[in-house]
Write a protein that binds this DNA or RNA. Structure first.
Lengths: 182, 182
DNA sequence: TGACGATATATCGGTCCGATATATAGTTCT
DNA sequence: AGAACTATATATCGGACCGATATATCGTCA
């Protein structure tokens, strides 16, 4: 069996403790791992078929009235595959931050407009912080501590980033004053 | 003119002050914005042609001996397009972190192996920190302060993240002890 | 009854990455 | 001098991934 895609492991992880449909997997991803690992329908549905064919999950038809519905459960092979992946040192670690990119090129703008980039970035981080806080409120007490650890990491990350934006804005204001008076 | 791709603005930003070839653009991206915005040859070369056709950059053939070489410069239209983009509030802000994903599902592993994920993540952050530090050493004093601000943000981010990994490892160790003694 | 939103699956266009192919130029080792 | 290797330079392909859209059924609420 060749290498599975990253999305495959997201699916394995989310069907491990309870059977879920593709739609439910997408929903739970959007409410938990989305901030550091997203997944779209365009990946999920084909991947479910591949995983079922490989015997790592099994699907059962559970229609709701006249609406088709297939929920998937993990198999013993799937559990083993998931654990083997978890044991390998994590590799992918990427960011894609348009704000930092604009800040990088901000010398092309008048200084006051460059500061505006930092203010936008800070506002965005605070908005994400609120979203994460809302998710934290929703979650009750669970025995698995890891999702909550990751979530609180996201919250702390947004706090750090918002604070950094604030400090950099102040720093640029200071250096602008220095130039005029010095 | 329809919307330009994000890569288009990376190119505009990097040919703004000095003419560069596609190869040079790739190299300078890899040594500066790669950590929050990457670009590959598969994007750069087609995008250079589109931008030249749209009149936002101009290419000139500057062969090195018998080796073909085209360097591009920004036009007045290109400068205007770049500034207009810089003035819009940044949108894209994504992460893709396999370590956090594995940590999220780490309940599927024995506790000791789960801690190993945090140790790997911390080691990776420290390694990136060293890379960024090396880049900082290379850069001399320049009058444009923004690339250095972004770079120092990256350094601080790696420090925060490595520290967080360390704290979470300690926290998990503590709670494991509590369970055994409590 | 009709409008609306949630559930459920499928697919398409486009962006982007990583790898590879080709060719030339310069450097280093023997 | 020749071989091997690395750097410069451009082009392209497969695959992963996202966002949007299409289709259809269900429940709810006015």
């Amino acid at each position: 069996m060749e290498q599975l895609s990253a999305t495959a492991y997201v699916i394995l992880g989310f069907v491990r403790n309870e059977p879920r449909s593709g739609y439910e997997i997408k929903a739970v991803v959007d409410n938990s791992t989305r901030f550091f690992w997203a997944a779209s329908y365009g990946q999920i549905y084909p991947e479910l078929k591949r995983l079922a064919e490989a015997g790592l999950i099994v699907g059962s038809d559970v229609p709701t009235g006249g609406r088709k519905r297939t929920v998937y459960e993990i198999t013993a092979d799937g559990e083993e595959e998931l654990r083997a992946w978890l044991r390998q040192a994590p590799d992918t670690f990427e960011m894609r931050d348009e704000g930092l990119l604009k800040l990088f090129f901000a010398d092309a703008l008048p200084r006051e407009e460059a500061l505006e980039i930092l203010r936008s970035m800070r506002a965005k981080r605070l908005a994400v912080h609120e979203q994460l806080e809302a998710i934290r409120q929703m979650k009750g007490e669970i025995d698995d501590p890891f999702p909550m650890i990751v979530l609180s990491g996201g919250l702390e990350y947004m706090e750090w980033f918002a604070d950094w934006c604030e400090r950099m804005e102040a720093k640029l204001l200071d250096s602008a004053l220095d130039e005029r008076s010095g």
